[in-house]
């Protein structure tokens, strides 16, 4: 028997997390670990709570009026709902890429530099270096290096989404949350994003919500299946897709509903 590899550390972990919008329960008592330097995919039909769960990992749900929670989420063993924890710091450590690419109506350079500037970095040489590093990290540098001063809105959809990834990478987060990052893109742009996710997991811990099961199978190490606000099953991606233990998971991954 080969020696069992050391279990990866859990970068983030939710414990009995329940989230309501007003009195409507969006997720129910979810306990899920996000292991370090792995890609964790969250799958499930629309409205199952997977996006809500993802957004609760960097407290983006705080922005929605009437949202309230029970239970908590740990980041490196510390509760993100701790009173002494600043939500601004949390969001710098846990970055997010949204479903619809949402570059600011600013130049390419200023988009990537945004997080650094609001963090107080003023040194021009350092800014330029970090912008280049982030754009390279998002595999966009070669395409935009000659037009950093042009508007980000002139980029194609796929480029815009990689720009948003670069923008998130620039603040050097530890965790990257991606909410269906490729759902609005064509297959070629999608392939680029997936390739990127593969490269990024060496440096970052990634959680990705996706509607596309092939994508979950391609990019993730672990998969969590959500249904009606509950976490039904979570395990290594291969097992979830080939040998799920729950009937509902099997029905979903084989396409019987969803």
């Amino acid at each position: 028997m080969p020696p069992t590899p050391a279990t990866p550390r859990n970068k983030m972990e939710s414990r009995d997390l329940t989230l309501r919008y007003g009195s409507k329960v969006a997720i129910k008592q979810v306990s899920l670990a996000i292991p370090e330097h792995k890609v964790t995919a969250l799958i499930g039909p629309s409205g199952c709570g997977k996006s809500t769960f993802l957004r609760s990992l960097n407290r983006m749900n705080d922005l929605i009026a009437g949202a309230n929670h029970e239970g908590t989420v740990f980041l490196d063993g510390r509760s993100i709902h701790d009173r002494t924890l600043d939500v601004v710091d949390l969001r710098r450590r846990v970055g997010m890429v949204f479903q619809k690419s949402n570059p600011f109506p600013k130049s390419i350079f200023e988009n990537v530099a945004y997080g650094l500037r609001v963090g107080g970095l003023k040194d021009k040489a350092k800014l330029a270096a970090r912008v280049e590093k982030s754009l390279r990290g998002a595999a966009l540098w070669d395409e935009v290096k000659d037009r950093l001063d042009e508007s980000a809105l002139g980029l194609s959809g796929g480029q815009q989404q990689r720009l948003c990834i670069a923008r998130a990478l620039a603040v050097e987060p530890e965790v990257l949350l991606m909410d269906e990052p490729a759902s609005a893109l064509d297959p070629i742009a999608t392939a680029k994003i997936e390739e990127l996710i593969h490269e990024l997991k060496a440096t970052y811990t990634i959680a990705i919500v996706t509607h596309n099961m092939q994508q979950a199978a391609r990019v993730s190490d672990r998969t969590a299946f959500f249904y009606m606000g509950e976490l039904v099953e979570c395990g290594p991606t291969e097992r979830i897709f080939t040998n799920p233990q729950e009937k509902r998971t099997e029905d979903y991954v084989t396409g019987k509903f969803g």
Partner: peptide
């Protein structure tokens, strides 16, 4: 001003006042 731009700014660790002033 699109809600997207506000959320993007906040998700990058900007405070509400920074989001107001810069976006």
């Amino acid at each position: 001003v699109p809600l997207d731009h506000r959320t993007a700014s906040l998700a990058l660790g900007a405070t509400q006042s920074q989001t107001l002033a810069r976006v």
